[in-house]
Amino acid sequence: MRSRLIWLAVILCLCCIGYMTIGARGPLSFVIPFRGTKLAALILVGFAISTSTVLFQTVSQNRILTPSIMGFDALYVMILTGAVFFLGGMAFVGLSDQIIFAVTASAMTLAALALFSTLLRSAHSNLMRMILTGIVLGALFRSLTDFMQRMIDPNEFSVIQGASYARFAQIETDLLMIATVVCCVGVGLAWRMRFALDVMTLGREAAVSLGVDLRRTQMKALVLTAVLVAVSTALVGPVAFLGLLVVSLARLVTPIEKHGVLFVSAGLISAITLIGGQTILERLFKLSTPLSVVIDLLGGALFLILLLKGHRR
């Protein structure tokens, strides 16, 4: 396992070098900070997405769900839009980006807890209904967001426009400082939970009898998931199937039920996908389609296959 993780790290380094150098023009003093911040943001997003997905899959006890599929990032965008809608763009512009982020991320965490904790508890009794609810909730959030955006003046609209769709090429670097802090704390806390999470993969009953406080762990994981989703959505917008794609890949590359390994490999693969995919698609192939659309296609197909695989007649 260790050698595989090292390989992944090496590949990630190569991707980073490629990202920094290929097609670079102008003096290094400009290129390095310009691309460097974007690179840092991508790595951050990669780890935030993979960690939140792993957490969510473990507490919901299945491998086809991700926070995005359940509508978490749609919820974030909706809360952001709702804030502009109800507070008004002017008040909003006056605030610093950091404060806006802190407020919306906290609101998002509360809303996610309220909505998804009851939903999660019904997972073992009716998983299909829970997933369906999540997807429909996501659709509802998106429609509500669209609705509020149309109610807002076009000028105010620009404040939130950036958050509504995924864009790995243009990243909101203004938030990088606070995002780094939040992401590191979140991933760190998740890392500390890794042994409890290992126990949870054995099943509810086993976890309880081994002395893991199920509800507490679930709540903690849900809060971390919400915060990490807020970070990644604030930086690059909703990511749809990316989490599912990279965590499923990670389970293939490091097929071992230990969160200590899974967190690392999923994080590395996630960063590789973002940075490598970005480099290859946009710099080498000059594809006009953004990486997010390609990931949507691949991840959507994977989701469909996973659903069908579990339920063939």
Binding site: M128, L132, I135, G300, L304, L307, H311
Partner: peptide, 29 residues
């Protein structure tokens, strides 16, 4: 699909529709 999982059908439908929608966006880009 097994008839014992009635909610799997709309779920697959939503994902299937979303997938074709993603294909549309891809081609459009």
């Amino acid at each position: 699909l097994p008839p014992t999982q009635p909610l799997l059908v709309p779920l697959i439908g939503l994902v299937y529709g979303g997938l074709i929608g993603a294909a549309v966006v891809f081609v459009a880009y």
